[in-house]
Nucleic acid binder design. Structure first.
Length: 828
RNA sequence: GCCUGGAUGGCGGAACUGGUAGACGCGUUGGACUCAAAAUCCAAUUCUCGCAAGGGAGUGAGAGUUCGAUUCUCUCUCCAGGCACCA
């Protein structure tokens, strides 16, 4: 017997326990069913589950549960992205070791997460801060090193001179240190990089198979982030020196219009050319200004100075002055550009400011203009004053000029990417140690696999000052060279936390593997991830790094396939009162309070109903109540008709259904169709509304006649409706549906039941409503029999009482009929 | 600044390939039940003019294409996410 009141508390715990006892969510590889790997981006264990998590994991669980009911062998794992800054901050502030703080948070969040009833295979839990995980990451790092895909170069970091420590961008607030408020400076440090640019072309071409399966906006963002430009690298000899300057240009066709060369202040050549005290001063000024702004920020007034040196034009051999300019950045191309003021707006502005010559080499076809330019001419045209290339179309000249330069070994045709190599060094404690040893004799030596993991020590002092605590640890950095056994220094930098999240999805396929990151057989069975859910803020970094890792792991034989995530859903944020939930705004709603008051089913239902998944969701208490009410309405319907629902069903063929029951049955099958389609197309909010409509319809039948469901045909109709409703809502509110399913007499889980099928023949209607318009404005609606011809419709429409006044005395110009939808009378 | 999205009633949102704008939920109003309240059930609810019948306007703003535009094109405004050391 069902209790009168819907009391989620008792129900939810009970079913969660039963699911766990019977291993409902345990995934294994020896199933005859097709596999389905459903994954949500794993959480950072900050301490508490927040509404964003609830939403993320509810979305993932809908898919996982739906696919299970559709007959798939589903894997849905969970883990912890548990290295990172907050743990280290907690260590500084509270004197607790980051490991302890993190593991405590995990334990707490696990309890909260479990109370949501998400169908995780908890046996596959992965925690990235534990040595059994990061030892394999360290192994991969040594492979990056050996295959020349990890290298060291100088990189810039934010530096607080007072704390003597490196600051993350987040820790720099308006140019000052977040802890001591001192002005932040830029410091050059030797850092480790992964050569992601070597895979730039594959990361771009891989988009082909993600088309239509990933949101277009994510593909667009990645495409621009990678930023492919076709062009050439051209060498300019420095006059009276053996030095050369190599420039990158997308406009080799304008080579004859070069009137100066501009190099970045950070370019190695700049320091060499600027020896005079005055030049050095100017150079330092520009360096500082460039370091403090974003690379692509527009500069109102471009600044620069002449270095005093000249370059030799590769084809004309003219003398070209070399300038330093603040609009040239070292991060892109070669850090040097050939300036063509006549055909590039930035160069034009610079030339105007410093009164440098402007030489026009492209004119529109058929023109002979010699008027001075008011702005750069960037449209297509024909080359002039360009030696043997004069008269050529400028697009064709691009290739021709590069070919000429290639012949003379002064240039080469290339593709330049905006994407930069991935800096993975962090001067922090709470990360996976980079497994490298520096030996005076042997140089840079990777730690051999037998010595891995390089573990983080427990006896560490966190002062928040003087940089990475690992550097000051008494023994960590003191080691022996793995090659010559002589005393050597261990690398104290740790890895960017994005490295852990770049391969965790693959670890889930074999989470306890102790002979490698994972076994190939298991990875090949489960990968790719069929459905990946997470925030859109990861579009360019995490999602690009993971794709890079996947291709690396493929090339090294760890797994097969080109892409890690076959389908992607980027969900929006949870906001409250129009703003992101945050402690400082005081608008945080904790999941705990919602679970206490309404239960997990309501929380899950609301987070899917209130907004489409990809949009931001405004948390609204009243809306939560509405969803709770909806569940109560189902419960009450069930409670009030328990005896009817318990009656054994006679075969459908023995019943003749009244018109009213047929309408209800149509609604039931309409709901199944609608929910199936809407879940497939990720419109969960609309799917839920279909279930609400069916419930409304059932209540409507009772409003006309309290005893409506007492006839045998109506009982049959109600049973069909309720059974369908429980099945369709099982992924959304699994605990309650499980309870009612059990009450219907089932002794197996609704969670593992088969997803219902709708019957198309029950959806067919004989009539339709025709919308009648005059000149595109709706004037009337009328019921018509299906299959009516256009001529018959026209006759009927023109004779309609509400239509006549609008067409009287006017000429019929057109009669448009969209079958079974609309008729538009066009008069004039 | 650059890249990428978004904007629909009082609110969250719906609308198939260009074809009834506002499904569903919240809120509000009215009714039923009740001694009363809560809960529940039913009904109405884009704005505006009108006693009504009915008319007019309407999907961020402005233009355009079309018999017909929330949907397609152009221009603009505002908001959000990302910008490489938050994850």
């Amino acid at each position: 017997m069902v209790s009168e009141k819907y009391a989620p508390k008792g129900i939810e715990g009970k079913w969660q326990q039963l699911w766990a006892e019977q291993n409902v969510f345990k995934a294994d590889e020896d199933s005859h069913k097709p596999k389905y790997f459903c994954l949500c981006m794993f959480p950072y264990p900050s301490g508490n589950i927040h509404m964003g998590h609830i939403r993320n994991y509810s979305i993932g669980d809908i898919i996982a549960r739906y696919k299970r009911m559709k007959g798939f062998n589903v894997l849905q794992p969970i883990g912890w992205d548990s290295f990172g800054l907050p743990a280290e901050n907690a260590a500084i502030q509270r004197g607790v070791h980051p490991r302890e703080w993190t593991l405590q948070n995990i334990a707490q969040m696990k309890v909260e997460l479990k109370s949501m009833g998400i169908g995780y295979d908890w046996d596959r839990e992965v925690t990235t801060c534990l040595p059994e995980y990061y030892r394999w990451e360290q192994k991969l790092f040594t492979q990056f090193f050996e295959k020349d895909l990890a290298y060291k170069k100088t990189g810039q970091v934010n530096w607080c001179p007072k704390c003597e420590t490196v600051l993350a961008n987040e820790q720099v607030q308006e140019g000052a240190c977040w802890r001591c408020d001192s002005p932040v400076t830029v410091k050059n440090l030797s850092q480790w990089y992964f050569k992601i640019t070597a895979y730039a072309d594959q990361l771009l071409s891989g988009h082909e198979q993600l088309e239509k399966k990933w949101p277009q906006r994510v593909l667009d963002m990645q495409k621009h982030w990678i930023g492919e430009s076709q062009g050439g690298r051209i060498q300019f000899q420095i006059e009276g020196s053996s030095e050369k300057v190599e420039i990158f240009t997308t406009r080799p066709d304008t080579l004859f219009g070069v009137t100066f060369v501009t190099i970045a202040a950070a370019h190695p050549l700049a320091a060499k050319l600027c020896q005079a005290p005055q030049s050095i001063e100017q150079l330092e000024k520009i360096k500082k200004a460039v370091a403090l702004r974003r690379p692509d920020e527009e500069i109102k007034e471009k600044k620069g100075f002449f270095t005093g040196s000249y370059a030799i034009h590769p084809l004309t051999k003219e003398k070209i002055p070399v300038w330093v300019g603040d609009f040239v950045v070292m991060e892109y191309g070669t850090g040097a550009v050939m300036a063509v003021p006549a055909h590039d707006q930035r160069d034009f502005e610079f030339a105007t400011t410093y009164q440098l010559p402007i030489k026009r080499v492209i004119i529109p076809e058929g023109e002979h203009s010699s008027e001075p330019l008011k702005e750069a001419y960037t449209a297509p045209g024909v080359l002039v004053a360009s030696g043997i290339f004069s008269g050529q179309d400028n697009e064709l000249a691009k290739g021709a000029i590069l070919t000429e330069l290639e012949k003379k070994k002064l240039g080469v045709s290339t593709i330049q990417y905006r994407l930069r190599d991935w800096g993975v060094s962090r001067q922090r404690f709470w990360g996976a140690p980079i497994p490298i040893v520096y030996c005076k004799n042997c140089g840079t030596v990777p730690v051999p696999e037998k010595d891995l993991p390089v573990s983080l020590p427990m006896d560490v002092i966190f002062s928040g000052k003087q940089g990475n605590p690992l550097e000051h640890h008494p023994t960590f950095s003191k080691t022996q060279c793995p090659k010559c056994q002589k005393p050597a220094r261990r690398e104290t930098d740790t890895m960017d936390t994005f490295v852990e999240s770049s391969w965790y999805y693959a670890r889930y396929t074999d989470p306890h593997c102790s002979t490698g990151p994972f076994s190939k057989a298991k990875a090949d069975y489960w990968l790719p991830v069929d459905y990946y859910v997470g925030g859109v803020e990861h579009a360019c970094m995490h999602l690009l790094y993971s794709r890079f890792f996947h291709k690396i792991l493929r090339d090294w034989g760890y797994l097969s396939g080109d892409e890690p995530f076959a389908r992607l859903l980027t969900q929006g944020m949870v906001i409250k009162d129009g703003a992101k939930m945050s402690k400082s705004k005081g608008n945080v709603v904790t999941p705990g309070s919602i679970l206490d008051r309404f239960g997990a089913d309501t929380a899950r239902l609301f987070s899917l109903f209130a907004a489409p998944p990809e949009k931001d969701l405004d948390w609204n208490e009243k809306g939560v109540e509405g969803c709770h009410r909806f569940l109560q309405r189902i419960w009450r319907l069930f409670y009030q008709h328990q005896s009817s629902l318990a009656d054994p069903m006679v075969p459908e063929s023995e019943i003749s259904f009244s018109e009213k029951c047929l309408i209800l049955r149509r609604k039931t099958h309409w709901m199944i169709q609608k929910m199936t389609d809407d879940i497939e197309s990720e419109k969960f909010n609309v799917a839920i509304s279909a279930a609400m409509e069916l419930v409304n319809e059932l209540y409507g039948a009772l409003a006309d006649n309290e005893k409506f469901f007492s006839s045998s045909e109506a009982k049959w109709t109600l049973q069909e409706a309720m059974r369908s409703l429980l099945l369709c809502l099982a992924p959304f509110a699994p605990h309650m549906m499980e309870e009612l399913w059990h009450e219907l007499g089932h002794r197996t889980f609704v969670t593992t039941a088969e997803w219902p099928k709708y019957r198309p023949e029950l959806l067919v209607e004989s009539k339709f409503t025709l919308v009648v318009q005059v000149n595109g404005k709706v004037r009337d609606r009328v019921e018509m029999a299906k299959g009516i011809t256009k001529d018959d419709v026209q006759k009927l429409v023109l004779a309609m009482d509400k239509i006549k006044p609008f067409i009287e005395g006017k000429t019929l110009r057109q009669f448009i009929y969209v079958p079974e939808k609309i008729a538009n009378v066009v008069v004039g």
